[in-house]
Design a protein around this nucleic acid. Structure first.
Lengths: 138, 138
DNA sequence: AATTTTACTTTCATTTTAGAAGTAAAAAAT
DNA sequence: ATTTTTTACTTCTAAAATGAAAGTAAAATT
């Protein structure tokens, strides 16, 4: 019996609680982040992110996100060993959540935030809709 | 040695990563949610929330959030045994994150979301700023 | 043909969590 | 005044999740 639970058991009918059941951990949204900024990623690309996710955790999260239809996994055009992960619309619609997390950190953890990230958040604060639209473009 | 780490070690200087270091779990934002909707809560109030948090987890999260200055803990005016938890500005500024999580669930998990929550999200979708302003009012 | 790369899986020690039970002070009831 | 209940936790322990390291197997490169 090596089966994982296939059915999502939400703790309640609260929409916050339900989305935390899916995304409430330290890694899932970071994987989404990489796909937002790079559009396409391979397993190796993800594992090179600076937060240092372990390969077992990464594999687990990727398969969950694919099952959820938040991302797709397709073959690399020339290399049979490599797979390309991309966000679906369902995944792209997580962008506003991530934008607001980044904005909060910009305000309250500013000194811990890289210059490059600050610039993105500053653009978002000036014109949130424009920045969201830009990143939702695939 | 029963000490917990006092210093926040952020995994990276990414603002998303940093906020997930603080809020990336299944319970923390639910505690914030209760304070958004009820303004003031006691330990018991929190533990009666429908997601059924255990008292040990609740105690742990409340002390972390207080240390972070996301909420305050003050004495009850008449009952010495009871403490009142309230959001600070730092905590109130998490509202947009929660609103966006709720919005995502509204779109993609609609059938799992209560009628009452749907109404709130619908109001938010019609006029996000107005709803945010209303909930930020203390 | 040998080596390297990629995408994982497996293993295991450590950490986190859930759930139940316990504690202690204050408040309420008798 | 004494007992009971309430509140806000803490403690304990089994189970689950995690991190780190090592292993695997097929494909690509040398």
């Amino acid at each position: 019996m090596k089966e994982k639970k296939e059915i999502e058991n939400f703790r309640s009918n609260c929409p916050l609680s339900a989305s935390l059941d899916l995304f409430g951990d330290k890694w899932t949204l970071l994987i989404i982040r990489d796909l937002i900024f790079y559009k396409e990623r391979t397993f190796k690309d993800f594992s090179l992110a600076k937060e240092n996710i372990s390969s077992s955790r990464l594999a687990d999260r990727l398969s969950k996100l694919e099952k959820l239809n938040v991302m797709t996994k397709t073959n690399h055009p020339t290399n049979k060993k490599v797979f390309i992960y991309k966000l679906t619309q369902k995944g792209l619609d997580l962008i506003p959540i991530i934008a607001e997390f980044m904005n909060w950190s910009y305000v309250y953890l500013n000194e811990h935030v890289s210059e490059k990230s600050r610039e993105i958040v500053e653009a978002y604060r000036k014109n949130p809709k424009a920045v969201l639209t830009r990143f939702k473009q695939q």
